[in-house]
Design a binder for these strands. Structure first.
Lengths: 129, 129
DNA sequence: TCGCTATGACTACAGGTGTAATCACAAACC
DNA sequence: GGTTTGTGATTACACCTGTAGTCATAGCGA
């Protein structure tokens, strides 16, 4: 039953993801707005952002709501769903589907700071009273 | 100081990763050996495996040790390192670098079974006596 | 010795990706 | 009304990826 299949057939690429983040953070922005937030950071031109927006609309990841002669772009998929899908993909690919293995790995390779560990511990207490 | 740059300049792709797994599992195999293990599973021809092996050697992810007229391929990077790099990339990209956020997400989306949680709890006890 | 065969090297090629220029055109301004 | 300007659409193009075919050639078997 292939769990957690994200609704889009097409995958979102790295560059596209950067655009998605901007729109998850604040939906209904124009191409120029999005550019304002990522162009300098990633060294992109407005044209690049426009291309990425178009592709994301084609892929069904964004909705383009007409607003005069331009569009306001809004994600059609929740960030939660995307993040969940990507996480699952990683866990499946690298940890044989076991999320616990991932956590174990992070712990063993010191990827978890003391604060992380404390936070996780608190989480666990909450989840298993 | 661009943190956690894995030793290879080039990224390993999905298809290449499948080949790497075979060689991590058992190093020093020939192209034919590797094909034996993945070709049917992925519907590949031997030629495809050869291409992937070549690209991985070029990328510095594999070493090719001459053995008569053929090569024995062996990973130059440890699976641990690769897995660590990929995990970190995901955490950086999707969870703002916070591994705890990833764990929280997995927990919240029910990606963690009761067994997973128990396992993690045990891990934590070990890590923070 | 001489052809067969296994093997890496090289070539191919369509589709995806990153990055952008150009075009058409409607709105805004003068 | 004519010009500038902001905008999406279209086109471009090099590189990466998946997938594989062809070629040269060094051994192996007869």
């Amino acid at each position: 039953m292939t769990p957690s299949d994200d609704a889009l057939g097409e995958r979102i690429t790295e560059a596209e993801h950067a655009v998605m983040e901007v729109l998850w953070d604040r939906p209904r922005q124009t191409a120029a707005d999005v550019c304002e937030e990522v162009c300098t950071a990633r060294g992109w031109s407005l044209a690049t952002v426009k291309t990425l927006l178009s592709r994301l609309v084609q892929k069904g990841a964004l909705a383009a709501e007409p607003d005069g002669r331009r569009f306001l772009y809004t994600p059609t998929i929740a960030r939660e769903a995307y993040v969940g899908g990507e996480s699952r993909r990683l866990v499946d690919r690298l940890f044989g589907g076991s999320a616990a293995s991932l956590v174990a790995h992070l712990a063993e390779t010191e990827a978890l700071t003391e604060d992380d560990l404390a936070e996780i511990e608190a989480l666990l207490k909450e989840l298993r009273p």
